[in-house]
Design a protein around this nucleic acid. Structure first.
Length: 571
RNA sequence: GCGCCCAUAGCUCAGUUUGGAUAGAGCGCUUGCCUCCGGAGCAAGAGGCCGCAGGUUCGAGUCCUGCUGGGCGCGCCA
């Protein structure tokens, strides 16, 4: 990805301040926006500089405003108490911003910080026992968007999906599947619930489940085949739903592959050396994490093996972590529910004891429903497929009304894109560490602060560009004109995009990009209602506005691409 | 009990990483706007001790401490 970085307006003002006060460095102060456009376009508060120079802020403000270079991109500099407000030459700055956006195209906004770096990310990894609900989808959408973000930043990203194809639950499911003649994806959840119920009621059933586990650990091929059949069926159904959301994976790692992996020795040896591994009075192999620097009493012990020698989930996860590490990515990421926080910390301690760096984890909190928590077993869930079906049906009605003449196939494609946009945007705009209450009706309304609203802005721009028949120059020139505040605010918003992407990358959170896209769409719609584009009287104004449309579409498109949202030509 | 996360308008959320001028959207409510580029829209109004109490600072929604309320977790589930 080509790296063309527009030095932001803030950075340029920052340079001006540094030139004015040679003893002051850029990190000594912050540059921001004034509370109102009437005051100026860029503001510098002078408190911190004043402190360093041991002179009152008001005096410093006077000095700065007097010595700032007027002309070029700065139109004026005015002291306002302890602040200096700069007004910029809108035509000059505007033409630069637009030129940069048009030149960079699909790369606009990328800071290219990932060039030459490899990332391994693991996310979703749903237990193969049910159709995914929006809570599980939160993980998939967060992981997928981080993937898209990092790729946008130039990283080489490989996406992994860990398939929990063994364990007690799957064993029970296999038992039940044996009794039923044929199991379909739609029946899996019922079967899963039934299997767990049976295990509670019939000790014999539960015992046979553990027997299967022991068999698979011995490498019994018949058992492995059965486990594989059940989990493959389920995985296939889950992936179909995730694919609708635009989420995809590069590599599937099956848990069963790691069950007899000798690399567990690496960790066990290290733990033994540190005196952290012991056999307890019941014969279990247990890790005492306090020997590894873990302080609280709660969560201090971690069981690796049952008394009968069979391994716990953590064993396979340790090996899997080693396996991922050995693939040599410079960044090893995973997305986990916050319920796994302690567990992941425990694993990290054990891995690090063996000299293996633990993956970096992005945690997300649960999505709640208005009437409380989701529960798969109680059927109190919003299934992703149900949501998408309902949303697409509503969107299809709208599209048919609006565009009765276009092919049915395209109508359906648009409806699907709108449905995906609605759910992805609703989930991604919220920071992952927050519990959110999912409101089905709000998510289906497509009005206000939603994905479809942003898509709609794009469709409007496309409509204008379709109707604009005059040839347009490649880039704006010196005739570029900014006439109104609405155009200027749109330009300022456009210029902020690379920094938004940089912040999101550093934090590994895409919520800022979603909220930025929303603000940009609002800025565009305000401009759209106030400023005629195709019917503007002045030719240079008309041309400038066409450029604003193109630049906005490019920026919204790039932002939505990171979020995994398409921008239909019409909707 | 111990640990981690969260608390902003009636509701759903931005803003907190890196402290700066009057705390922002949307939904819902009230009122306008389609002879004009797409009304999935725009403009305006009402609605806030930013959970509570201290502290740091010239300045706190933002940083620190305590408390309250909610979420999550804490030895043979995965």
């Amino acid at each position: 990805m080509e790296s063309v970085s527009l030095k932001t307006i803030f950075e340029r003002i920052s340079d001006v301040v540094c030139t004015c006060f040679p003893d002051i460095k850029a990190e000594d102060f912050v540059v921001g926006a004034p509370p109102s456009l009437d005051l100026g376009d860029v503001a510098v508060p002078l408190f911190s500089i004043a402190k360093r120079l041991r002179r009152p802020p008001v005096v410093i403000a006077g000095e700065l405003s007097a010595s700032a270079p007027i002309g070029g991109f700065i139109e004026s500099a005015a002291a306002a108490g302890p602040y200096v407000n700069f007004k910029l030459n809108r035509n000059v700055v505007g033409a630069e911003i637009i030129g940069e956006i048009i030149r960079s195209g699909g790369c606009w906004g990328s800071n290219n910080t990932g060039a030459g770096k490899k990332v391994l990310i693991e996310h979703t990894s749903i237990n193969p026992n049910a159709s995914p609900h929006v809570g599980r989808g939160r993980c998939a959408m967060i992981g997928d968007s981080i993937t898209r973000l990092l790729r946008f930043e130039g990283y080489d990203v490989e996406v992994h999906y860990y398939v929990n194809d063994m364990g007690r639950q799957i064993g029970l499911l296999v038992l039940l599947a044996d009794e039923l003649r044929q199991l379909t994806f739609a029946q899996i959840l019922d079967a899963y619930v039934e299997a767990n119920k049976r295990a509670e009621e019939e000790p014999e059933f539960a015992r046979r489940g553990y027997e299967l586990l022991a068999k698979i650990e011995e490498g019994d091929e018949e058992t492995q085949r059965k486990f594989h059949a059940v989990t493959a069926l389920c995985l296939k159904g889950q992936l179909a739903v995730l694919e609708r959301l635009g989420v995809s994976y590069d590599v599937f790692d099956r848990e069963s592959r790691y069950v007899t992996d000798s690399r567990l020795d690496i960790v066990e040896r290290a733990l033994t050396e540190k005196g952290a591994l012991f056999t307890d009075e019941d014969g279990r192999r247990v890790v005492d994490l306090s020997k590894l620097g873990y302080e609280p009493e709660e969560g201090r012990y971690f069981v690796l093996r049952r008394a009968n020698g069979s391994s716990m989930y953590g064993c396979r996860d340790l090996v899997y972590s080693i396996d991922k590490h050995e693939r040599g990515a410079s960044l090893n990421l995973m997305v986990l529910g916050e319920d796994h926080k302690l567990y992941a910390q425990q694993l990290a301690l054990m891995l690090e004891a063996a000299g293996i760096p633990a993956p970096e984890v992005v945690y997300y909190a649960y999505i709640l429903l208005k009437d409380g928590k989701m529960s798969t077993r109680q059927g109190k869930v919003v299934l992703l497929s149900d949501f998408l079906d309902q949303a697409a049906a509503l969107a299809l009605e709208r599209v048919r009304e609006q565009f009765p003449d276009i092919a049915s196939e395209e109508q359906h494609a648009i409806a699907e894109q709108v449905a995906v946009s609605a759910i992805r945007f609703a989930v991604l705009r919220v920071r992952p560490n927050k519990n959110v209450t999912f409101d089905m009706d709000a998510a289906l309304s497509f009005q206000g602060d939603t994905g479809p609203y942003i898509q709609y802005s794009c469709a409007r721009i496309r409509s204008i560009l379709r109707k604009h028949k005059e040839p347009i120059p490649q880039a704006p020139d010196s005739s570029f004109k900014v006439e109104t505040d609405a155009e200027w605010m749109l330009l300022m918003k456009l210029a902020a995009f690379p920094q938004v992407v940089a912040d999101a990358t550093a934090q590994r959170v895409c919520a800022g990009i979603a909220n930025y896209a929303l603000e940009l769409a609002h800025a565009f719609t305000a401009f759209y209602h106030e400023c005629p584009v195709l019917t503007a009287d002045d030719e240079s104004v008309r041309r400038a506005r066409i450029f604003l449309c193109r630049a906005t579409l490019q920026t919204l498109g790039n932002a939505l691409h990171i979020l995994g949202i398409e921008t239909p030509e019409r909707m």
